[in-house]
Design a protein around this nucleic acid. Structure first.
Lengths: 345, 345
DNA sequence: TTGTACGCGTTATCAC
DNA sequence: GTGATAACGCGTACAA
């Protein structure tokens, strides 16, 4: 009874047609109405389902784009994956996700696996592979990066406009009246870019940069950095390179009896899903993960056409919530004192 | 220059061997050392990579198990996916994830897609498909469920021991001295099971069940239910069917000026990654997502062998943190008053 | 130990 | 409009 899965041959026999006709019928080719009807009933009766593996073998395309993502646990990566799905869906394609848990070796294996499956393209999120290793691994398969952690080569890439986000965050703090603003920096590429942007923003405002402490992109990393930072005098606000670090900072502040935002304002980065549910709700820079995923998917699928859009910057938006406010003892008398900073547009 | 991908033929020619020999060499068959060496260098020179699609066509297996997951955003689902990966890795297999965003229609499409890719098995997380629709959709492919939302049929399944988790949570509250314990219930299957377990646990302690309010499994759902619940007098503790709902409750409590845990103790369910970073850190029932994923993966792969393990219960653990404590104005004088409740083991 | 030849399920190219 | 039939890239009898 448990015959193996019906093939196109079975359908052909059942419908008294040739496999060629069945194939045409299934793919919207020219078929007589009578034949089409017979084939459709045969398909229904047999429960036939096309074998996409065999199909892929002959067409040379799989309808799959491989996505290698650091891990599934982060809401941001999930959003990016969702964005990729969005545009793939429109084209009747699908994503195949593989995780690399931030290990370059695993990333290589992931790419190998995906290429073995004949994916039509590759979206690499936060890739750490050096340019040459990457080029060898993908060997011709179209690639698009999202927030690449390694150095750039010519591959198309979508990145957050980290600098713009940082500027918005720092300006928000300046506008509130803060003058002594610390920074908790991340050690990955985007963390460093954010740190540099922070330094630039402070310089632009004619201010000394506040203390900067670096750490892992985690709650613990943020907490450890915060311990070192909060010891410093005068700091009335801290800008963190990620929400997870900001959570660590919140903890450290609470332990020291510092009220947020009254004693110290906190601004994060990413706007992870739970940022709004913290206490106080976190002011942060929202990273539009889904949009970034969408953009990346479009880049892979269209990379042959326009060869010259290597890097696409998407704009973040500042989300002001309860963790930031005016300093309780401002060193200057208020926002009015902040002249000279050029107002955009 | 950009010749298409090298095939096994190319390797054979380059190594002056037949494709059969190359195939054997690649799959660990018996090959002379000399031939093996030539083949290996040829593979390296050409950058040959086996075409798993073609391979799957002839072997009849794909080395893939399809996983359909409600969404990627939830840390719990991510943990389950990770668990599945764990056991697949050991066997040199891989997971192919597809999301259904909680829509049964999308779930069906996801299963179709996966079956078209010749997956060797299917792990369905939180499936809502009716038994017959499911049976038709999978059509012979081995299936294992995780926390199935629809009714059971004979398919192997791993579920949390929801009742045990609820019992632990309620006992924790009883031990702390609470007598009037409310419940915020979820409307999905596991939500209802938890509600029933809550009612049973209260009855077992000889207590009237407290007020019960149901809502969506979200922060908003929890908040709305909490608004209704916190109006009731005497409630000194609330057990929530999920952490997300507990967050809503925390918000509602704060808005009403209720201190947690002093005015009201809160216990959640799931132990999502950020539960410990809430303020106060959330006491909750940890759902071992990764273990559940592992168990499910083993079930799919071994389902032909032991046909009679349809439902596997995994035990949750209570994680006590800051959101629960003794009532400020207990109706009884303390834990000592709680006699009669049987102590486990 | 090695090579030949067939088949896996499908699409595409022809004739008809 | 329809039906043979040759690929697609690989595994695996079977023969050598």
């Amino acid at each position: 009874m448990s015959r193996s899965r019906p093939t196109i041959h079975d359908v052909a026999r059942e419908a008294r047609a040739s496999i060629a006709t069945v194939s045409r019928a299934l793919n919207g080719g020219v078929v007589s109405a009578a034949a089409l009807a017979r084939i459709e009933t045969a398909v229904a009766r047999l429960g036939y389902r096309r074998n996409d593996v065999a199909r892929g073998l002959v067409t040379g395309r799989s309808g799959l784009v491989g996505v290698v993502v650091p891990d599934l646990m982060g809401p941001l990566y999930a959003q990016m994956a969702r964005g990729i799905e969005d545009v793939l869906d429109e084209r009747g394609m699908h994503a195949m996700l593989v995780t690399d848990h931030l290990e370059p070796a695993a990333e290589r294996r992931a790419i190998e696996l995906l290429r073995g499956r004949q994916v039509d393209g590759l979206v690499l999120i936060g890739s750490r592979l050096p340019a040459d290793a990457l080029r060898a691994a993908v060997a011709g398969t179209p690639v698009a990066h999202v927030q690449r952690d390694g150095p750039d080569d010519g591959d198309p890439q979508v990145r957050l406009d980290d600098a713009a986000g940082v500027r918005a965050a720092v300006r928000h703090l300046l506008d509130a009246g803060h003058r002594r603003i610390g920074h908790i920096a991340g050690t990955r590429r985007d963390g460093l870019e954010r740190r540099d942007a922070y330094l630039a923003a402070m310089a632009e405002a004619g201010l000394e940069p506040g203390p900067v402490e670096a750490g892992e992109f985690t709650e613990e990393g943020g907490e450890a950095a915060a311990e070192r930072l909060l010891g410093q005098r005068d700091v009335t606000a801290v800008f963190c390179a990620s929400d997870r670090m900001a959570v660590g900072l919140l903890h450290a502040a609470r332990r020291r009896g510092l009220a947020v935002p009254d004693d110290v304002s906190v601004v994060g980065f990413d706007d992870l899903t739970w940022a709004r549910y913290l206490h106080p709700p976190l002011t942060t820079v929202r990273q539009p993960g889904r949009d970034m995923g969408r953009a990346a998917a479009r880049l892979v699928l269209e990379s042959p056409f326009d060869a010259a859009v290597p890097i696409l910057r998407v704009a973040p938006t500042l989300v002001v919530r309860g963790s930031s406010g005016p300093p309780s003892d401002p060193h200057v008398t208020g926002p009015a004192a902040r002249a000279g900073a050029p107002s955009r547009r």
